[in-house]
Computed example of a mutant assay.
Amino acid sequence: MSDATPTVEEAIVAQARVHAREVADEIGVDLASVDWAVSARAKRRAGVCRYDHEREVATVVLSRRAYRSYDSGEFEAIVRHELVHAWEFQTHGESGHGSRFRERAAAVDAPRHCEPFSEPRYRLVCSDCGWEGKRHRASNPVKAPDQYRCGDCGGGYRVEHVESGRTWTTAGGYGAARAALGDDW
Protein backbone atom coordinates (compact mmCIF):
# COMPACT_ATOMS: atom_id res chain seq x y z
CA MET A 1 0.00 0.00 0.00
CA SER A 2 1.36 3.41 -1.01
CA ASP A 3 1.35 6.62 1.05
CA ALA A 4 1.80 8.66 -2.11
CA THR A 5 -0.07 11.95 -2.17
CA PRO A 6 -2.26 12.20 -5.26
CA THR A 7 -1.17 14.58 -7.99
CA VAL A 8 -3.24 17.70 -8.66
CA GLU A 9 -4.63 15.99 -11.76
CA GLU A 10 -5.66 12.92 -9.76
CA ALA A 11 -7.33 15.12 -7.14
CA ILE A 12 -9.24 17.05 -9.81
CA VAL A 13 -10.50 13.87 -11.47
CA ALA A 14 -11.37 12.29 -8.13
CA GLN A 15 -13.44 15.30 -7.04
CA ALA A 16 -15.13 15.47 -10.45
CA ARG A 17 -16.01 11.76 -10.39
CA VAL A 18 -17.47 11.98 -6.88
CA HIS A 19 -19.67 14.91 -7.86
CA ALA A 20 -20.60 13.26 -11.16
CA ARG A 21 -21.89 10.19 -9.29
CA GLU A 22 -24.02 12.49 -7.11
CA VAL A 23 -25.73 14.16 -10.10
CA ALA A 24 -25.59 11.57 -12.90
CA ASP A 25 -29.16 10.32 -12.46
CA GLU A 26 -30.55 13.84 -12.31
CA ILE A 27 -28.72 14.78 -15.52
CA GLY A 28 -29.41 11.43 -17.19
CA VAL A 29 -25.79 10.88 -18.22
CA ASP A 30 -24.26 7.39 -18.47
CA LEU A 31 -21.00 7.69 -16.51
CA ALA A 32 -19.75 4.35 -17.84
CA SER A 33 -19.31 6.16 -21.16
CA VAL A 34 -17.51 9.21 -19.73
CA ASP A 35 -13.74 9.55 -19.50
CA TRP A 36 -11.95 12.28 -17.54
CA ALA A 37 -8.82 14.32 -18.27
CA VAL A 38 -7.12 17.48 -17.01
CA SER A 39 -5.56 20.27 -19.06
CA ALA A 40 -2.60 22.14 -17.65
CA ARG A 41 -2.58 24.49 -20.68
CA ALA A 42 -6.15 25.85 -20.72
CA LYS A 43 -6.18 29.53 -19.79
CA ARG A 44 -9.75 30.65 -20.39
CA ARG A 45 -11.83 27.51 -20.72
CA ALA A 46 -12.71 25.83 -17.43
CA GLY A 47 -13.74 22.63 -19.14
CA VAL A 48 -14.68 21.02 -22.43
CA CYS A 49 -16.52 17.87 -23.40
CA ARG A 50 -15.27 16.01 -26.48
CA TYR A 51 -17.16 13.12 -28.01
CA ASP A 52 -15.66 10.15 -29.84
CA HIS A 53 -18.49 8.95 -32.09
CA GLU A 54 -16.70 5.68 -32.96
CA ARG A 55 -16.22 4.66 -29.32
CA GLU A 56 -19.36 6.48 -28.13
CA VAL A 57 -17.39 7.96 -25.25
CA ALA A 58 -17.49 11.53 -23.97
CA THR A 59 -14.28 12.88 -22.48
CA VAL A 60 -14.65 15.70 -19.97
CA VAL A 61 -11.45 17.76 -19.83
CA LEU A 62 -11.16 20.08 -16.82
CA SER A 63 -8.71 22.96 -16.47
CA ARG A 64 -6.14 22.78 -13.69
CA ARG A 65 -6.09 26.60 -13.50
CA ALA A 66 -9.87 26.77 -13.11
CA TYR A 67 -9.78 24.12 -10.39
CA ARG A 68 -7.25 26.19 -8.47
CA SER A 69 -9.20 29.43 -9.02
CA TYR A 70 -12.74 28.31 -8.23
CA ASP A 71 -14.20 27.27 -4.91
CA SER A 72 -15.63 23.74 -4.70
CA GLY A 73 -19.18 24.87 -5.54
CA GLU A 74 -18.03 26.69 -8.68
CA PHE A 75 -15.90 23.71 -9.69
CA GLU A 76 -18.82 21.33 -9.25
CA ALA A 77 -20.97 23.63 -11.40
CA ILE A 78 -18.37 23.25 -14.18
CA VAL A 79 -18.54 19.46 -13.81
CA ARG A 80 -22.36 19.60 -14.15
CA HIS A 81 -22.04 21.87 -17.20
CA GLU A 82 -19.71 19.42 -18.95
CA LEU A 83 -21.89 16.44 -17.96
CA VAL A 84 -24.87 18.13 -19.61
CA HIS A 85 -22.75 18.24 -22.78
CA ALA A 86 -21.92 14.55 -22.31
CA TRP A 87 -25.64 13.77 -21.90
CA GLU A 88 -26.42 15.66 -25.11
CA PHE A 89 -23.75 13.74 -27.00
CA GLN A 90 -24.99 10.44 -25.60
CA THR A 91 -28.66 11.08 -26.37
CA HIS A 92 -28.54 13.33 -29.46
CA GLY A 93 -25.09 12.80 -31.00
CA GLU A 94 -24.28 16.51 -30.79
CA SER A 95 -24.02 19.27 -28.22
CA GLY A 96 -24.08 23.04 -28.01
CA HIS A 97 -25.46 25.77 -25.78
CA GLY A 98 -28.91 25.92 -27.37
CA SER A 99 -32.35 25.57 -25.81
CA ARG A 100 -32.03 21.84 -25.05
CA PHE A 101 -28.74 22.47 -23.23
CA ARG A 102 -30.10 25.51 -21.39
CA GLU A 103 -33.16 23.59 -20.19
CA ARG A 104 -31.16 20.64 -18.84
CA ALA A 105 -28.46 22.89 -17.37
CA ALA A 106 -31.07 24.99 -15.54
CA ALA A 107 -32.64 21.82 -14.12
CA VAL A 108 -29.33 20.80 -12.51
CA ASP A 109 -28.13 24.31 -11.61
CA ALA A 110 -25.29 24.27 -14.14
CA PRO A 111 -24.16 27.58 -15.63
CA ARG A 112 -24.61 28.18 -19.33
CA HIS A 113 -21.19 29.87 -19.40
CA CYS A 114 -18.40 29.84 -16.85
CA GLU A 115 -17.04 32.88 -15.08
CA PRO A 116 -13.53 33.83 -16.22
CA PHE A 117 -10.80 32.58 -13.93
CA SER A 118 -7.84 34.38 -15.45
CA GLU A 119 -7.12 37.80 -16.86
CA PRO A 120 -6.66 38.00 -20.63
CA ARG A 121 -3.25 38.84 -21.99
CA TYR A 122 -4.69 41.11 -24.69
CA ARG A 123 -7.80 43.22 -25.14
CA LEU A 124 -9.16 43.81 -28.66
CA VAL A 125 -11.28 47.00 -28.80
CA CYS A 126 -13.30 48.47 -31.67
CA SER A 127 -12.30 52.11 -32.11
CA ASP A 128 -15.82 53.01 -33.30
CA CYS A 129 -18.41 51.18 -31.18
CA GLY A 130 -16.26 50.14 -28.23
CA TRP A 131 -16.90 46.39 -28.59
CA GLU A 132 -14.32 44.51 -26.57
CA GLY A 133 -12.89 41.03 -26.90
CA LYS A 134 -10.51 39.36 -24.51
CA ARG A 135 -7.68 37.24 -25.87
CA HIS A 136 -5.25 34.97 -24.07
CA ARG A 137 -3.12 34.19 -27.10
CA ALA A 138 -1.71 36.30 -29.90
CA SER A 139 -4.35 35.41 -32.49
CA ASN A 140 -4.24 36.87 -36.01
CA PRO A 141 -6.41 39.89 -35.08
CA VAL A 142 -4.02 40.60 -32.19
CA LYS A 143 -0.96 40.39 -34.43
CA ALA A 144 -2.45 42.33 -37.37
CA PRO A 145 -5.52 44.24 -36.18
CA ASP A 146 -5.59 46.41 -39.31
CA GLN A 147 -6.50 43.31 -41.35
CA TYR A 148 -9.77 42.79 -39.44
CA ARG A 149 -13.00 44.70 -38.87
CA CYS A 150 -15.50 44.73 -36.01
CA GLY A 151 -18.38 42.33 -36.63
CA ASP A 152 -20.82 44.76 -34.98
CA CYS A 153 -20.07 48.03 -36.78
CA GLY A 154 -17.23 47.44 -39.26
CA GLY A 155 -14.82 49.68 -37.33
CA GLY A 156 -11.10 49.09 -36.90
CA TYR A 157 -9.44 47.48 -33.91
CA ARG A 158 -6.98 48.67 -31.31
CA VAL A 159 -5.16 46.01 -29.31
CA GLU A 160 -3.92 46.46 -25.75
CA HIS A 161 -1.30 44.34 -24.01
CA VAL A 162 -3.13 44.23 -20.67
CA GLU A 163 -0.15 43.93 -18.32
CA SER A 164 1.86 46.78 -19.84
CA GLY A 165 -0.91 48.97 -21.24
CA ARG A 166 0.86 49.21 -24.62
CA THR A 167 -1.49 49.48 -27.60
CA TRP A 168 -1.23 49.03 -31.38
CA THR A 169 -3.43 49.10 -34.47
CA THR A 170 -1.13 47.49 -37.06
CA ALA A 171 1.10 44.44 -37.51
CA GLY A 172 4.10 46.77 -37.23
CA GLY A 173 2.74 48.12 -33.98
CA TYR A 174 2.45 44.56 -32.65
CA GLY A 175 6.08 43.88 -33.56
CA ALA A 176 7.25 47.14 -31.99
CA ALA A 177 5.33 46.50 -28.75
CA ARG A 178 6.70 43.00 -28.55
CA ALA A 179 10.27 44.18 -29.14
CA ALA A 180 9.93 47.02 -26.62
CA LEU A 181 8.65 44.71 -23.90
CA GLY A 182 11.33 42.06 -24.50
CA ASP A 183 11.30 39.56 -21.63
CA ASP A 184 8.20 41.21 -20.13
CA TRP A 185 6.12 40.18 -23.16
Rank of each mutant, 00 (worst) to 15 (best):
P141V: 02
Q147V: 07
G133A: 14
C150N: 10
V142A: 01
C153M: 05
R158F: 00
A138C: 12
Y148P: 02
E160N: 05
H161V: 01
D146W: 09
V159E: 09
K143P: 14
P141N: 09
Y157Q: 06
V162S: 01
Y157N: 03
H161W: 01
E160F: 04
R149E: 13
G154F: 07
G133F: 11
K134A: 14
G154V: 10
E160V: 10
G154T: 04
H161S: 05
A138D: 08
C150S: 11
R158L: 07
G154W: 07
C153E: 02
V142G: 03
E160T: 09
P141W: 02
C150V: 08
R137N: 13
Y148A: 12
S139I: 02
G154C: 11
E160C: 09
K143Y: 09
G156A: 11
H136W: 11
C153T: 10
H161L: 03
G155D: 01
G154R: 14
V159H: 05
D146G: 11
G151Y: 01
Y157I: 00
K134N: 11
V162T: 01
P145S: 10
C153L: 11
H161K: 02
D146S: 13
S139N: 13
G154M: 10
K143N: 12
C153Y: 07
H136L: 04
K134F: 12
D152L: 11
D152E: 13
Y148Q: 05
R135Y: 10
V162E: 00
R158H: 00
G154E: 05
R135H: 12
Q147I: 00
C150E: 09
N140I: 00
K134M: 12
P145H: 08
P145I: 12
G133C: 06
G155M: 05
V142N: 03
Y157M: 02
K143I: 14
Q147R: 15
G151I: 00
H136Q: 06
Y157T: 05
K143T: 14
G155E: 01
R137A: 15
A144G: 14
D146H: 15
K134D: 15
